[in-house]
């Protein structure tokens, strides 16, 4: 229970200090530290990262969602192909999905050419990959649960009954 409460706090805001978590959950600070270390060790807590709107920072990045069809391997199924694909640093996320294709790959690069050449030179030629369909991202609206535009303001009065 305490674990889940700590995880949901951190998922919302990874910058919370151990003390702030302790205050919000009523668990002692030392114990929070222990639980968090344990969760890191077990691989439940994987990373603490910022959600960045790169466009606003004036940095151009190109993202593409690529549908990949593959022939599964005997004994390994999809895993061995997937583990080759996910090792490329250009690949930001990778999912096995149901439907008309098998893997959904999110690739990020500095330009369209960079992404295109990654697909042409690294991804498509892999053994077992039978086809790829590349969708370039035109605009991001929401990322990792955070809205990039149209945030809502609080419009409360300063004092109310």
């Amino acid at each position: 229970m305490q674990e889940l409460e700590i995880l949901s706090l951190l998922e919302e805001n990874a910058r919370l200090s151990m003390r702030e978590i302790a205050d919000a959950t009523g668990v002692e600070e030392e114990k929070v530290k222990k639980i968090v270390e344990e969760l890191e060790k077990r691989g439940v807590l994987l990373a603490y990262r910022a959600v960045v709107n790169w466009e606003k920072a004036g940095v151009e990045k190109v993202c593409a969602l690529i549908d990949v069809k593959i022939t599964p391997e005997r004994e390994h199924g999809y895993d061995s192909v997937a583990s080759r694909i996910m090792r490329f640093p250009e690949v930001k996320s990778l999912y096995l999905v149901s439907g008309t294709y098998d893997l959904s790959v999110l690739v990020e690069g500095r330009s369209m050419r960079e992404v295109a050449s990654f697909v042409a030179e690294k991804l498509a030629p892999l053994q077992n990959v039978t086809s790829t369909t590349t969708h370039f991202v035109l605009k991001k609206y929401k990322e990792a649960g955070v809205m990039l535009y149209d945030g809502e303001e609080l419009r409360r009065l300063a004092v109310s009954p």
Binding site: R156, A158, V159, S160
Partner: peptide, 19 residues
């Protein structure tokens, strides 16, 4: 409420509604 209106940079714990 009127007193608070005139002050800038206030952190309000005076609001009787959800945030």
């Amino acid at each position: 409420f009127e007193l608070v209106q005139g002050v800038e940079g206030v952190i309000s714990l005076g609001v009787g509604e959800p945030d």
